[in-house]
Design a protein around this nucleic acid. Structure first.
Length: 795
RNA sequence: GGAUCUAUAGCUCAGUUGGUUAGAGCGUUGCAUUGACAUUGCAAAGGUCAGUGGUUCGAGUCCACUUAGAUCCACCA
């Protein structure tokens, strides 16, 4: 053995052997109880970031259960990450001086598909580098045909159950990226927005958005406000920048008399609160900002200006006409931003598909609250995250699932152009979404503008399970057009646990899919930051689609921040590539340092000293093995028959199956149970070893190891991986090496040597889930009979 | 505005249901050592466990409040 452990010589070969041996498949333990984890699918096109290294927790669970004899399935997948990916691709296009508008829809889609597929191998290789024992034969992609089919059919099911509706509502719309978002995706930030006090006839009101005044359809005051009582219900004639206008005064509780002057302009098309007020008072909606971010024809002379320009121009004009009473330049408010391009989102009225969440949330709450819930019970670890889960589900809002991007699963909904034109009496407006888009290019689609705000527009749509309908069911016309929108990525990933299992092959059952055997899955492990985005939605969709919870346990880890404690992000440029660290310190050290010293669910700071300490630990372990191997050789040279490795030193009578270990058997480590030496020496029961030992100190250490095995096993079962790693680190190094080996060194004989070797291999096995490479290599150097990955967990 | 989390050694963090003298890594100081260990071993210094009050035979751990930091939700015209 080399003097220093060199992970670079070892890791790739070992991973290859595991993979070739088929050890990642649950079928290695054909009769085992099913244990399954679905990998949270990383973005197919982006390289792994440090958060992904936390998959180590899943690998630990899988390896531990595999060693325990479970049929352990860890199913890998990749997410198409719709908007994210299109955003990246558009940047890539921009670098070539092009934009998405240079392509038709099909070409753009095909190009992105290719782009993503060219990047995909990278992500998979990175996962392999970190040693993750994923069953690659079951790899899935969210855009796989069979997955898409399932997503489509569940959309149809939701639609038929009236849990999906189409409505014109205000959405958060990014006029730069050309798509809407769900509430969750909006980030809020404080900005200085001057507050303008504007004269509206006899009234003065305060607003940060004077440019939207052309869309005002009322002004509102608080019903209890004595100052304005006389105006309520009146129609005021006011002077505006575009001449005289009439405006209605309504009373609404929404108005805070303390703010500004206690008078609010109501712009239903461009403000969420105003939209609600408008619904209550039956006010008309007047859109004055287009989807291109420019003022439209209702803005008179300001038409064609971008919002920011228009604000300036409108204020100047108002000042000329003496309509501005004062301006509070330092006013700070919070604005919604696009999480991708950081531009201010515009609330705009748009027809979108929404999911009614309340009926879905109820059983999801029940599944966690009630241990005997009919859909099955889910436990959340650590338990404290239950509060967040309930808080989200109990206050849930309907989910906008349509996105105006091309890279995604297209919504299987069609409408009949003939029916629409008969209904509205006009040709449907074409290309209303984005005036920048030329007619005939990919986003220009018929958008029926005759829908009342908030109303479900079910009548004109035909929803299918994906196949295009041949003709309109009402008028038999074949003049049908599919919705151009695609699903929010999270809509497909919310179906991931069952969709994957319904589409992967089960070798054990000789059936088409794994669903029967592995659903509900055992554990969903992910960062707590996507508990609401993803985990809760999976619970809802899982229960809805299958009647069963998608997983029995939710295990949540914290975030890994940069060495200074700041959140890693591309824009800050402080992202650390886990692969670079694996290259430098070894995958085992990276893995170990991620679970050592951090309790589950807590954030951690990426620590180079900790990585170095972990690397030294792998080296320590390696040198302990080297010492034992050396002693074995010394003993054999002193005339003992064949004690090169301990497997030859185990007396036949203590071996359960009576077989004699040999390097030949080990190196092939066959899986078929019939021909294994399953009870090989490294998994002798403690009792057998204790009976075998003659020296009383050796017996003491056997007991110590035995106690450690039970403690560590208990910690494994309760997701206390920090305890597992800390206890093993302390014991292996500062007890076993510093005290026991130092002691046994001076009195080594054949019997003690066997005990030493056996105990060390037990410790080595305990470390395997966390540090799979070095332990596997050591196991083979010291004559383990099977590959460690498929050896039995010590007990 | 509502909620959650965190506060332990110089730094980064453990401390499982309350139970002797509160631990680790890194750093610091001293000694030893090329021995299985591009090192390792032995030893030392370093903590009123954020503060106040309470429950208890006993509190880092449970409760209340205070302070500081972080995060999330709602969103301000």
């Amino acid at each position: 053995m080399d003097k220093v452990y060199d992970h670079k010589k070892v890791e790739d070969n070992i991973y290859k052997k595991w993979e070739e041996g088929g050890y990642f498949k649950p079928e290695v333990n054909p009769d085992g109880q099913p244990y399954s984890i679905i990998l949270p699918p990383p973005n197919a096109n982006a390289p792994l970031h440090f958060g992904h290294a936390m998959y180590v927790i899943e690998d630990i669970l899988i390896r531990y259960h595999r060693m325990k004899g479970f049929a352990a399935l860890w199913l890998p997948g990749a997410d198409h990450a719709g908007f994210e990916t299109q955003f990246v691709y558009e940047k890539h296009l921009a670098a070539e001086g092009k934009s998405r508008f240079d392509f038709d829809r099909d070409t753009l889609f095909k190009d992105i598909w290719e782009f993503v597929h060219n990047n995909r191998g990278g992500m998979e290789n990175q996962l392999k580098k970190l040693g993750f024992s994923l069953d690659w034969s079951r790899l899935k992609f969210t855009m796989d045909e069979d997955i898409v089919k399932i997503v489509h059919s569940n959309f149809k099911k939701l639609y038929d159950d009236e849990l999906i509706y189409r409505a014109k509502r205000l959405v958060n719309y990014c006029t730069f990226d050309g798509t809407s978002f769900s509430d969750l995706e909006v980030i809020h930030e404080e900005r200085v927005s001057p507050l303008y006090y504007i004269k509206y006839g006899p009234l003065v009101l305060a607003t940060t958005r004077p440019e939207t005044k052309f869309g005002d359809t009322a002004v509102a005051v608080n019903p209890k406000d004595e100052r304005y009582k006389k105006y309520v219900g009146q129609e005021l004639e006011i002077e505006t920048v575009l001449g005289k206008a009439k405006i209605k005064v309504v009373a609404d509780e929404m108005v805070d008399p303390e703010f500004g002057t206690g008078v609010v302009k109501i712009t239903p098309a461009h403000d969420f609160n105003d939209f609600e007020v408008a619904k209550r008072h039956n006010l008309p909606m007047k859109q004055v900002i287009g989807f291109d971010g420019k003022m439209n024809e209702h803005a008179g002379e300001f038409a064609g200006l971008y919002v920011k320009q228009a604000r300036k121009a409108v204020v100047e004009k108002m000042q000329e006409k003496g309509l501005v009473e004062k301006i509070d330049e330092n006013y700070v408010n919070r604005v919604g931003l696009c999480y991708k391009c950081k531009n201010i989102l515009e609330p705009l009225p748009l027809e979108q598909w929404f999911v009614k969440m309340e009926p879905l949330a109820k059983p999801a709450i029940e599944a966690v609250k009630n241990p005997s819930a009919s859909s099955g019970h889910i436990k959340i670890h650590p338990k404290s995250f239950e509060k967040l889960y309930f808080q989200f589900l109990e206050n849930i809002r309907d989910w906008n699932i349509s996105r105006q991007v091309v890279w995604g699963i297209r919504i299987p909904a069609w409408r009949c152009l003939d029916c629409i034109s008969r209904h509205s009496g006009d040709d449907p407006p074409i290309g209303g979404v984005d005036a920048r888009i030329k007619e005939g290019s990919w986003t220009s689609s018929p958008r029926f503008d005759g829908v009342e705000a908030g109303q479900d527009d079910r009548s004109s749509w035909i929803v299918t399970e994906g196949t295009a309908p041949e003709k309109c069911s009402k008028c038999n016309s074949n003049n049908l057009v599919q919705d151009t929108d695609t699903f929010d990525t999270w809509f497909s990933s919310s179906q991931w646990p069952f969709a994957t299992l319904q589409t992967t092959q089960n070798e054990k059952l000789k059936t088409e899919n794994d669903f029967e055997r592995f659903y509900p899955t055992t554990v969903m492990e992910t960062g707590y930051d996507i508990l609401r985005w993803w985990v809760a939605r999976m619970v809802m969709m899982g229960i809805y689609a299958t009647g069963k919870v998608p997983f029995e346990n939710i295990v949540l880890h914290g975030l890994v921040n940069d060495p200074l404690g700041k959140k890693m992000s591309k824009s800050k440029g402080n992202v650390v590539n886990p692969l670079a660290l694996a290259d430098e310190y070894g995958a085992d050290a990276v893995r170990f340092s991620l679970v050592y010293g951090t309790a589950l669910g807590n954030d951690q700071i990426l620590s180079y000293p900790k990585l170095e300490a972990s690397r030294r630990f792998t080296n320590k372990l390696w040198n302990m093995a080297r010492f034992i191997e050396m002693k074995g050789v010394e003993l054999s040279q002193k005339g003992h028959p064949e004690p090169v490795s301990v497997s030859n030193k185990i007396p036949d009578q203590v071996r359960n199956d009576g077989s004699r270990g040999s390097h030949e058997v080990r190196s092939d480590a066959v899986i078929a149970r019939s021909e294994t030496t399953w009870q090989s020496f490294e998994t002798l029961t403690i009792e057998q070893l204790s009976n075998f030992a003659t020296n009383p100190t050796d017996k003491e250490w056997i007991l110590k190891v035995s106690n450690l095995v039970s403690e560590v096993t208990k910690n494994m079962e309760t997701y206390q991986f920090n305890q597992v790693s800390e206890k093993l680190y302390e014991f292996v190094w500062h007890q076993f090496a510093d005290i026991y080996i130092e002691d046994v060194k001076t009195r080594i004989d054949e019997n003690s040597f066997t005990v030493l070797n056996s105990l060390f291999l037990i410790l080595n096995s305990l470390l395997h889930p966390m540090m799979p490479f070095v332990t596997e290599e050591i196991n083979s150097k010291l004559g383990g009979l099977r590959q460690l990955i498929v050896s039995q967990w010590p007990e």
